[in-house]
Nucleic acid binder design. Structure first.
Lengths: 143, 143
DNA sequence: TTTTATTGTAATGTCAAGCATTACATCTAA
DNA sequence: TTAGATGTAATGCTTGACATTACAATAAAA
């Protein structure tokens, strides 16, 4: 099991828009060439990012622009925008037997810990902004 | 996307073995009745848990026993035993374009943060032992 | 106003994973 | 030797991810 690549594609997409904004028309074709996926995949990604209020897309004329401060976009925001995970991260088996003492209580006991683990993951993503990622890009290029 | 229910099934399985050990013959059929899945699913789970050195299964005569201190089995150990996640949790798009500055560096920049998030999840699971879960069961039953 | 490039979106196909289930060879204890 | 289990292969179903084709709607430029 893996978390869908829509997430890393979306981050990549935002960075391409940021870096080429003003210099190139950042169409779905242009972005797709950098990410190396089908342009339709990028268009769907753009739709999600637009829905999350991060970008503006120009239908017809083409291109996208970032309309939110990169300091205020975290990896978690992107992760949410593309709906990597549908509610609970862990899939709990549906119908434990309520006439068994273990089956009866396992949900309430385990749920807390699963939620904690999921929160740990998401908080980690919340701790990283795109502004920070951009900085790291500069550092990486300098190296 | 969700992490496979093999994980919660495995935890449930271990708890059933623990609670009924000595009182009932904990066969795959018996456990399956509590978890409410097909017995073959339980047999495969038992294989994984046996492989991880947590239980002993009696082929032929039937039944399973825990052979490791519950204080030394964490949720992370179970999660690993049933192979919920194959290596990296996040699926990175495979071939970013190396002739684009973004495509060239995105892997190295992003990987660190993805690994951090995954580690946060796993460390959270590492912090909970089955012994603790059993205690919480008692508390839950008393309430 | 027509053309042209682009987005928005539906439809389709392929592939892999998860889970359920049947079937049966193998094993062990009574 | 028999009865009840496990170990394991095989099969089918369903779902989700991803790729791709196609085309209507849109907007800017000619």
């Amino acid at each position: 099991m893996k978390i869908t690549s829509r997430f890393t594609v979306a981050v990549h997409t935002l960075l391409v828009i940021y870096y080429f904004s003003g210099k190139e028309k950042t169409t779905s074709d242009f972005i797709a060439a950098s990410v190396n996926v089908n342009p339709v995949v990028i268009r769907r990604t753009l739709l999600s990012l637009k829905g999350a209020g991060m970008i503006e897309v120009k239908a017809g004329s083409g291109g996208a622009d970032i309309v939110k401060d990169l300091k205020e976009i975290t990896l978690y925001d992107v992760y949410r925008a593309v709906e990597c995970v549908d509610g609970d991260l862990f899939h709990f088996h549906e119908n434990p037997n309520p006439s068994c003492p273990v089956g009866r209580s396992i949900h309430s006991v385990l749920d807390v810990h699963l939620a904690d683990a999921q929160a740990a993951l998401e908080n980690s993503l919340r701790g990283v902004t795109l502004a920070q990622i951009v900085q790291e890009f500069e550092a990486h290029r300098g190296a």
